[in-house]
Design a protein around this nucleic acid. Structure first.
Lengths: 244, 244
DNA sequence: CCTTCCCAAAATGTATACATTGTCGAGACT
DNA sequence: AGTCTCGACAATGTATACATTTTGGGAAGG
């Protein structure tokens, strides 16, 4: 049995719309008109509205006062704030995990992810298996978000992370050619290891500070892209949502 | 002109459903069946689904995998975590406001709210104008959430605050008869004043710590209610959502 | 020339009939 | 007795016709 609803019209509309918004085909601020859209997607208005309602939950659309939806738009500062917010929430997850304590197995598991991440680094300074690193990194952050055992925290963290540019993986893939990015991976991995140690040692404040600083790497990378090489912007996921 | 959509069937359904959920008429975990509900509310299924989609955004409902909606349910720990989360987010708003600086007017305005809160305290120790205090307190937190000038932060803070038991006013109204609650108001007001001072003085860490500790008052009050006098539970907004 | 009112068009809101899908139980076969 | 399957029911999913509201422009009046 597949995921129920995966073959529904609403799901098709959801996927198609999400893709177009993230690709920038439908730019930020654009109002989504039901009739033309339903014709373009060859889907009737009812499931289309269902899809749009879900995209509001994802944070990609906004409801407009008089009815209808527009593509949400983010300024540079909004992107910075979303990254900061992720840091704050991951920090909270890490702190609570440290303060409340976590089960042996969960901690071991997280440690194994960190060990696996170590194996992505080769002998030479800049030699890194990016694809594998990216996957494992996503796994690390996923586990971290649930480590405190709080569904409320996990839920909000997942929510913020759903904004592509605020995701922990936003500045990872196929950035192999940028020296500054490669070096940031070593720092990031140090922080991963330190976070696990802090949580294991019940050092809540340290775990929180580390998670916040960890998110700052994403901010650094974003600022590098904006100031040094804007041609890389198109490779950052969700950047089509940014204006200015 | 009134709020657009305020007279729509979807809005009626939204209000009716929200009321029933918060009152506990429709208990946590209950699945909302479209046909019976639409008959009960005398509203067709289409606007009903619209209303349910909005209640998902509000955090009162959850979508269920196979389709449909259920009333979200919170354990005691979830309520604690939601309050903690509010503290973390208000702390972030306060810290960013301090670090980035806020305009003269906004800061003055916040200070005036604090001064007005002062006037709610009479000469005798426990003499407080609760209604006025409650209103002004809501205003203080509302302004605080926007003080950093970050729409991303404000949005998520508003979102968490929409859970009634996590709202800054959750443990305020008509609690005049509880000595412990009355005393907490004095502490709270001290924290209000200190937060403004910290923000004005660009003391980010202090502002953040104060906001977090401020939210802990709500937690204290919740724990008091749970341990000392559960008969008060029914007076706490949103407690119908709590199970266990 | 600006303002205001009003109408028409276009948008969202609503109802409802119908389609599809998932669920649960009864029956038969093993 | 257990289990597998099939079918009926009940739920959500979809399409579409119709209602209502909003909006923009143009004409009339100040």
């Amino acid at each position: 049995m597949e995921t129920p609803g995966s073959g529904t019209q609403a799901m098709r509309a959801l996927i198609a719309l999400r893709e177009r918004i993230l690709a920038g085909t439908i730019g930020p601020g654009t109002r989504l008109l039901e009739v033309p859209l339903s014709e373009a997607l060859e889907i009737s208005r009812t499931p289309l509205r269902e899809a749009m309602a879900r995209l509001v939950e994802e944070g990609l659309l906004e409801r407009v006062r008089a009815g209808g939806f527009v593509v949400r738009s983010f300024g540079f500062q909004d992107v910075i704030d979303a990254i900061e917010l992720r840091g704050v929430l991951e920090g909270t997850a890490a702190r609570l995990a440290a303060e409340r304590g976590v089960g042996e197995e969960a901690l071991t598991e997280l440690g194994e992810v960190v060990s696996a991440l170590d194996l992505c680094f080769g002998a030479a300074p800049g030699e890194v298996e990016f694809e594998r690193y990216s996957e494992l990194n996503a796994g690390f952050h996923e586990r971290l978000s649930g480590l405190a055992g709080s569904s409320v925290i996990k839920r909000e963290l997942d929510r913020v992370t759903r904004l592509p540019f605020a995701s922990p993986s936003a500045f990872l893939p196929d950035k192999a050619d940028i020296v500054a990015f490669r070096r940031s991976l070593n720092v990031a991995q140090d922080q991963h290891r330190a976070m696990v140690a802090a949580i294991a040692g019940r050092e809540g404040a340290r775990a929180e500070a580390l998670a916040r600083e960890h998110a700052r790497l994403a901010r650094q990378n974003l600022e590098y892209v904006m100031e040094e090489d804007r041609s890389l912007l198109s490779r950052v996921p969700g950047m089509a949502l940014m204006v200015g």
